[in-house]
């Protein structure tokens, strides 16, 4: 059972206190989008063996959504950050790259 730190309220808690929300940073496809783009938005997920940016909600805590950068192989958590962003902050990107050289291109 994972341990995660909510970047909003600062609490470090067990996985059961959070609700998972799948892959982070999907771009919403609305009316006017192509069939391919819409299909990818609904169904295509990265499922990497390695670094995964994923959504979580502190469901049984402050209720806020946030993102976690986590290795799907070792379960290492590189960091968490608020959901109000289109990508991980620069410090976290650097931290991930330090632990997984080459990320995000081919790096695990």
């Amino acid at each position: 059972m994972l341990m995660l730190t909510c970047p909003h309220c600062g609490v470090t808690a067990e996985e059961t206190e959070f609700a998972p929300g799948g892959q982070a940073h999907l771009k919403r496809q609305g009316p006017g989008s192509s069939d391919d783009d819409f299909e990818a938005y609904l169904f295509a997920r990265a499922n990497p063996r390695g670094v995964h940016l994923e959504r979580w909600r502190h469901a049984f805590g402050c209720g806020k959504w946030f993102h976690a950068a986590r290795c799907t192989v070792t379960l290492e958590v590189f960091g968490t950050y608020p959901a109000r962003t289109a990508g991980p902050p620069a410090e976290l990107r650097a931290a991930i790259a330090a632990r997984r050289p080459g990320w995000p291109e081919g790096g695990r």
């Binding site: 929300g21 959504r55 469901a59 959504w65 959901a83």
Partner: peptide, 13 residues
């Protein structure tokens, strides 16, 4: 309620 919060927090923040 969770659905509303999800959209407000993650899409139309």
């Amino acid at each position: 309620h969770g659905w509303m919060e999800e959209w407000l927090q993650t899409e139309w923040w």
